[in-house]
């Protein structure tokens, strides 16, 4: 497995070098469809990959159902900027948010299974809500690709290779619709990324994020308690959280 990764990685570097050397870069020209094949994903080196993995406890939940390795790494980097590790506690990376997102996109939420997806499709007012044809998993994949393209266009490097400030600026441009795209709504993608990040931070650990309930602990949220009859009339109380696993 390691050998295979390395050989792919090797290919990637030379391919990237080729693109750089030959001066092929995607400009701001908006064309129909996502430009994908020319822009490489950054897979990163072996050491870097190891560092981003949560190696404390081997969790069999931490593998991918939908995203590619490269898409996963971009997701991990972007969600970490939305909720970074700092002196207050872990960030999205340590809490497994990217795994959470991958797993959700693979399931009914990614397929918009319980949304009305019937045609015809028309552009509407913002207050009428999402009216697109694409499912969330498609929006997410296209969004990651567009973010990668935009990073190459601005910095000649992929999203995981630029500085944190540069990453923040790219996310901000998506949030504020400053990126001109013909495929998806940049802010729509950003909002999906942000809301799924919050879900991954704070949903029950059964979904793959909020690892060891550290997301809850950080904000003094006690998770799933049977009740609060004893404390409801009292002053603020810090409690050790408990999860649905404790109900099994």
């Amino acid at each position: 497995m390691a050998d295979e990764n390395q050989s792919k990685h090797g290919e990637d570097v030379s391919r990237r070098k080729f693109l750089k050397n030959s001066g092929i870069a995607v400009g701001g020209l908006a064309v129909g469809g996502v430009i994908g094949s020319m822009i490489p994903w950054d897979v990163g080196d072996k050491e870097e990959q190891k560092a981003t993995k949560n190696v404390k406890n081997k969790s069999y939940n931490q593998a991918l159902m939908y995203l590619s390795q490269a898409e996963f790494k971009t997701t991990e980097a972007a969600t970490e900027r939305i909720f970074p590790k700092d002196e207050h506690g872990p960030g999205a990376g340590d809490l497994g948010v990217a795994y959470y997102i991958d797993h959700q996109l693979a399931g009914s939420y990614g397929f918009n299974a319980r949304d009305y997806m019937e045609p015809p499709f028309f552009h509407g007012e913002k207050v009428q809500g999402y009216q697109g044809r694409l499912k969330r998993r498609e929006i997410f994949r296209v969004g990651l690709r567009e973010m990668q393209n935009y990073s190459h266009q601005k910095h000649k490097k992929g999203f995981t290779e630029i500085t944190e400030d540069q990453q923040d600026n790219i996310l901000k441009d998506f949030q504020e619709d400053k990126v001109k795209l013909s495929t998806i709504s940049p802010s729509g993608f950003f909002n999906l990324l942000r809301s799924m990040t919050l879900e991954g931070l704070y949903s029950d650990p059964l979904y793959g994020g909020n690892i060891d309930m550290e997301g809850w602990r950080m904000r003094n949220y006690p998770g799933d308690q049977m009740g609060y009859t004893d404390i409801i009339e009292g002053d603020f109380k810090k409690m050790e959280p408990s999860s649905l696993r404790d109900h099994m």
């Binding site: 918009n112 299974a113 319980r114 009305y116 028309f122 509407g124 007012e125 009428q128 809500g129």
Partner: peptide, 29 residues
């Protein structure tokens, strides 16, 4: 967040417009 107890909108929803000049569009989510 995922509305477990709510009506499955893929089967039935409603459409909405602010006034009669606007095209009503489905509440998809």
């Amino acid at each position: 967040i995922r509305y477990e107890l709510m009506q499955d909108l893929s089967k039935d929803t409603l459409t909405f417009r602010r006034n009669e000049k606007i095209r009503a569009l489905p509440m998809r989510q």
